[in-house]
Amino acid sequence: MSLSSTEHTEYTTVSPNGQRMRLDDVSVAFAGRMAVRNVTFDVEPLKVTSMIGPSGSGKTTLLRAMNRMHDLTPSAKVSGSITIDGVDIFDKSIRLTDLRTRIGMVFQRPNPFPSMSIFENAVAGLRFIGVKDKKFLAESAERSLRAAALWDSVKDRLQNAAGTLSGGEQQRLCIARSLAVEPEVLLMDEPTASLDPIATAQIEELTQTLKQILTIVIVTHNMQQASRVSDNCAFLLMGDDMAGELIEFGETTKIFTNPNDPRTIDYIAGKFG
């Protein structure tokens, strides 16, 4: 399936609103054990930023810090500062539920809600925040499903269970679900890890369209994917004490063609990982 240009334009009738996120000296510890240490970089608005590195390097941990997912884990402690549009996400005045509608998340395995229909999945976030207007819900569902390049294939079966979709379609439904609450940033945690090559290509293509309207951060252990989809790239590596560290951050082309750090060169060359 390809993304038709109409789908794209219809969605962008909403003004693009990708925000900048800034990570400053961010560390994450679980039960006192450091998992990621002192990471600083900027997520540029309306661009795709990738995080790469071998497993254990803390990519996912860092990503989950960016929408305060670690608040679910009592033993987790995040320090340093993370801002969106200049506002500290840990600020007391920020309500978590608001924050998460501004910073959406897509997970490794497609996780549509099995008890809901395709339509209900698409508008689940809107229902959570209390939107009741039927017309608004229907329009939002269409808009977000179009933006996720899913509308054409599901528009005639919106009431079917989400479980009836293929893996790739489910993942795009999850993206649509996130888009429906009109986030400014979308965090993607290895979104293609469980998908076949065709579905993977579709998701990758989708990121290129979506970055025109929001900011994307994508974690991947697939270096080709990072080089294909991202504008900027952060390379993380596990330090001596098992805590992940940021080795290098920069434009993706630079990281992949002319990195500064010898460890980045080794990783890109496939010497470890």
Partner: peptide, 11 residues
């Protein structure tokens, strides 16, 4: 815009 409505509703 829908985004403004959503933010407003959420808040």
């Amino acid at each position: 815009t829908p985004r403004e409505i959503i933010r407003r509703t959420s808040q």
